[in-house]
Structure formats: C-alpha cells, structure tokens
Computed example of a mutant assay.
Amino acid sequence: MTVALAATAAFTVTMPTSQAFAINHIACRGGENYLKIWSHKDGKDRVDCYANRGKASFGGRWVDKISTGNNDLIYYDANGDSVKIRRWHQISFPNRPPKVKAIEIL
C-alpha cells in the first residue's frame, strides 16, 4: 500500500502542468487590439470581439471583415478549409465572404 501511494504521489508531482486557455467573447471597445470580426447571417449584421487563446464556434456566419489586432487567427470555413491570418492584419471580403464555422486564436 505504501509503495502504491508513493508511486501515485511521484506521478502527480512529475506530471507537467500547463496553463489552460479559453477564448473569450468580449465587448468591443475602440482603441483595443483584440480580434474583431464583422459578419452577417439571416439579414442581421454583427460585430464580435475576442481575446485569449482558444477555439470557438462561429455559427456559420458570413464574415465581411476581420481585424486580427495582436492575435494570430485561424478561421475554419464551411468548405472544410482553414485559413491563417497573422496578427496586425485587416482583411475585407466584399464580394465572396467566407461562411465560418469556427475561429481559433493561437
């Protein structure tokens, strides 16, 4: 019993710990360097801002514009493609907006 308890304790101590990251949907404010996405679906326009590393569903919205701020981004579109956009970039999709299923801040 003592050997099993010691082995369990050693395993627990030596396991690496990693910080958990969770993407957060936040209020958009001028002058901030968050990820900002302009989109539309079913005739309704929306602007969303996000912070922190992680992945989130984007609900199949059509993306009109993306401003990455200080974030590297991957968006996953309905066609199965994934597109990486580096930080400090702004991209508009005036003619053929992608239908985005999920977003990921790296």
Rank of each mutant, 00 (worst) to 15 (best):
57 S>T: 01
84 K>N: 05
86 R>L: 13
26 I>G: 12
63 V>A: 07
22 A>Y: 09
7 A>L: 11
39 S>K: 01
8 T>G: 06
67 S>H: 09
64 D>S: 06
45 D>F: 14
67 S>T: 15
62 W>T: 05
43 G>R: 10
77 D>A: 02
19 Q>W: 00
9 A>T: 04
80 G>C: 10
4 A>P: 02
40 H>A: 14
67 S>A: 15
51 A>N: 14
35 L>Q: 07
50 Y>S: 09
94 P>E: 02
39 S>I: 11
51 A>G: 08
28 C>D: 14
87 R>H: 12
49 C>D: 10
104 E>S: 03
1 M>Y: 12
44 K>T: 12
53 R>M: 05
62 W>R: 05
3 V>A: 15
54 G>Y: 01
95 N>H: 13
8 T>N: 00
85 I>W: 09
40 H>M: 11
55 K>I: 01
14 T>C: 07
94 P>L: 02
48 D>H: 07
22 A>N: 06
22 A>W: 02
102 A>L: 03
95 N>L: 12
61 R>V: 09
74 I>K: 08
62 W>D: 08
12 T>I: 10
62 W>M: 12
94 P>I: 09
12 T>K: 05
49 C>F: 06
48 D>C: 02
30 G>A: 14
24 N>A: 14
53 R>D: 04
93 F>V: 05
85 I>T: 11
23 I>M: 14
79 N>R: 02
82 S>Q: 14
70 N>H: 13
16 P>T: 01
91 I>Y: 04
30 G>I: 09
25 H>K: 15
96 R>I: 06
17 T>S: 02
70 N>A: 14
63 V>W: 06
43 G>L: 09
3 V>P: 10
95 N>W: 15
62 W>A: 10
40 H>Q: 07
26 I>L: 15
102 A>V: 07
18 S>Y: 01
63 V>M: 10
88 W>R: 15
47 V>D: 07
4 A>K: 01
14 T>N: 08
42 D>V: 00
15 M>L: 15
67 S>M: 14
99 K>W: 07
106 L>I: 01
15 M>Y: 13
90 Q>M: 13
64 D>Y: 08
58 F>E: 03
99 K>H: 05
45 D>E: 14
53 R>P: 11
80 G>V: 07
26 I>N: 02
6 A>N: 10
99 K>T: 00
100 V>P: 02
6 A>M: 08
59 G>M: 10
106 L>Y: 01
94 P>S: 00
106 L>P: 11
65 K>I: 11
18 S>W: 12
43 G>F: 00
82 S>H: 12
12 T>V: 13
59 G>C: 11
43 G>P: 00
31 G>A: 03
28 C>L: 15
42 D>T: 06
57 S>W: 08
79 N>H: 12
97 P>W: 04
58 F>W: 02
45 D>S: 15
54 G>Q: 02
10 A>V: 03
12 T>F: 05
29 R>Q: 15
14 T>S: 10
102 A>F: 04
97 P>E: 03
96 R>P: 08
22 A>V: 06
60 G>L: 04
76 Y>M: 11
101 K>L: 04
67 S>F: 00
104 E>T: 11
45 D>P: 00
100 V>S: 00
78 A>D: 01
53 R>A: 04
73 L>D: 09
44 K>C: 11
20 A>K: 12
95 N>P: 00
54 G>E: 08
11 F>C: 09
6 A>F: 08
